Amino acid sequence: MNFTVTIDRDEDGMWIIECPAIPGCVSQGTTKDAALENIKDAIALCLEVRAEKGFPLTIETRQIEVTA
């Protein structure tokens, strides 16, 4: 499965990655590459927990471009 993620840096320089399609699925890393690897594990674990609890695996999200 392919998921869209958001990537940000916090004030301490950590890379924070969130998967909007899976509520609460967030990870981080000291480098962008590490954070991207970590979110893959987080996605797998979040999907496993959601399936065990009978929750929908994902929620509908939509990506659009906005010009400001």
Rank of each mutant, 00 (worst) to 15 (best):
E52K: 08
G29S: 00
I16V: 12
E52M: 05
T4I: 14
A21S: 11
V49R: 03
E37S: 15
F55W: 12
P23R: 02
G24E: 01
R50A: 13
E60R: 13
D41I: 13
K32H: 06
K40C: 14
G54N: 03
I22C: 03
K32M: 11
E65Y: 07
A34C: 09
T58L: 06
K40F: 09
D10I: 08
M1C: 04
I16D: 03
D10G: 14
L36W: 04
I43A: 02
L47P: 06
D8M: 02
K32C: 11
G24C: 01
V49G: 08
E37Q: 14
T31E: 06
F3E: 04
G13I: 14
I43W: 00
L57D: 10
A21P: 03
R62H: 13
T61R: 02
D12T: 12
A21I: 07
E11A: 12
C25G: 05
G24A: 02
L45D: 12
N38W: 01
C19D: 06
R50Y: 09
T67K: 11
A42T: 13
I43G: 00
I39M: 10
L47V: 09
T58N: 07
A21R: 01
A35Q: 02
I16K: 00
D10C: 12
I39R: 03
A34V: 12
G54Y: 02
T31N: 03
G29H: 00
R9H: 13
P23N: 08
G24K: 00
L47K: 05
A21E: 12
E18L: 01
I43E: 02
R62P: 07
I17V: 15
A34L: 13
F55L: 15
V49W: 07
I16P: 01
A42C: 13
F55T: 06
V66K: 10
E11D: 15
E52N: 09
L47C: 09
L57P: 12
I64K: 11
Q28L: 06
V49Q: 08
I39N: 05
M14C: 14
K40S: 15
V5P: 01
L57Y: 04
E18Q: 04
C25I: 02
I64P: 08
A34N: 14
D41R: 08
L45V: 13
Q28R: 04
I39Q: 05
D10S: 11
T31R: 01
T61V: 11
T31M: 01
